[in-house]
């Protein structure tokens, strides 16, 4: 409590004294008790325990759980499959995040025009965002199917391809196919965020630009895009964090194959933990992912601040 408050507070504090304050704080601790307990168990303790696990060989089926020092860490750095899964994850992220954002921005710019039926169009683009991701992955797995998939049917009908493509079974096509599906499911989110930001751009900026004789495209380039900068950074950070953790579509559509070409970091961690039950090693891998994410986020925020100045 600060001292410079209204007289009423002073009076009541004087009257109630220390006991009253302890009781008041007591209720605050009471409010916090259960949330804090859950948080302590499932987050704080879990974090410490995960760190502990990284120094042990810990399997749920082995009774012996020896301390191995930094063995897990050096294994991780020498694990070619893990490094490949990082490369795959970079590939996924590097394509899906920028393309999703670009399409989202384009759609948002167009939807910001005074169109009739704008609400309906927006809803349609947004539909994948509210659909369970598992369902999307299932439908796209069907669409990609080599024997009866719709993509092959229409591509062959229009004469673009001669014979069916094995989208998810061809090593060179599998990752692009997963990426395409992820872009499709993510555009609506970028669009909504951009749309909200677009409508917050001060109207006067456009008027000023128009008075200066700027064309539509010049206005877009010199007014709109710079004004959207914080939104773009936000989407980039969120997008990278999310796509570094890509899992569901891999699990359902490709199971990490063919020949590990779509094995992403989290899919790899999942396998290490719940297929091979190497909990110590899997925890180490998870910290590796965390380190990557951390560095990435810092770099982005740094670039953002530099750009601000």
């Amino acid at each position: 409590m600060t001292t410079a408050t209204a007289p009423a507070t002073t009076v009541s504090r004087h009257r109630h004294g220390l006991w009253w304050r302890v009781r008041r704080n007591g209720s605050a601790y009471g409010f916090l008790a259960v949330p804090l307990l859950l948080f302590m168990v499932f987050t704080v303790f879990a974090l410490v325990f995960a760190f502990y696990l990284t120094f042990h060989e810990w399997s749920i089926i082995e009774p012996e759980r020896p301390f191995v020092g930094l063995q897990n860490y050096s294994d991780m750095l020498a694990d070619e499959s893990y490094l490949r899964s990082i490369v795959n994850t970079f590939y996924f992220t590097g394509v899906s995040v920028p393309v999703t954002m670009a399409i989202g921005l384009l759609v948002a710019l167009l939807l910001n025009l005074p169109l009739r039926g704008r609400g309906i169009i927006r809803t349609l683009y947004f539909l994948p965002v509210v659909t369970p991701f598992v369902v999307i992955a299932i439908v796209w797995k069907w669409l990609y199917n080599g024997d009866f998939g719709l993509f092959n049917y229409y591509l062959m009908q229009t004469g673009i391809i001669e014979s069916p493509l094995l989208f998810l079974a061809d090593p060179d096509l599998a990752m692009p196919s997963v990426i395409a599906m992820s872009i499709w499911s993510g555009v609506g989110f970028s669009m909504v965020i951009y749309l909200a930001a677009l409508q917050a751009v001060p109207f006067q900026l456009y008027e000023a630009a128009r008075v200066d004789g700027a064309t539509r495209l010049q206005q877009l380039w010199h007014v709109t895009i710079p004004q959207l900068r914080p939104t773009t950074v936000f989407l980039l950070v969120i997008g990278i964090i999310n796509s570094f953790q890509v899992f569901t579509q891999i699990f359902i559509m490709t199971s990490g194959g063919p020949v590990e070409r779509t094995t992403t970091v989290v899919y790899f961690i999942y396998n290490a933990a719940f297929k091979f039950y190497e909990f110590g090693y899997a925890s180490t891998l998870a910290f590796g992912l965390f380190a990557l994410l951390f560095v990435f986020t810092l770099v982005q925020l740094h670039l953002y601040r530099k750009g601000e100045q």
Binding site: F45, A50, L289, F290
Partner: peptide
């Protein structure tokens, strides 16, 4: 305590997955 909550927001769920399973 609030700072503790905020800091952990950055941590990816994969890290706490295995400990929570064991808990």
């Amino acid at each position: 305590i609030f700072a503790l909550f905020l800091i952990t927001m950055m941590i990816p769920g994969q890290i706490t997955l295995i400990p929570n399973y064991l808990v």
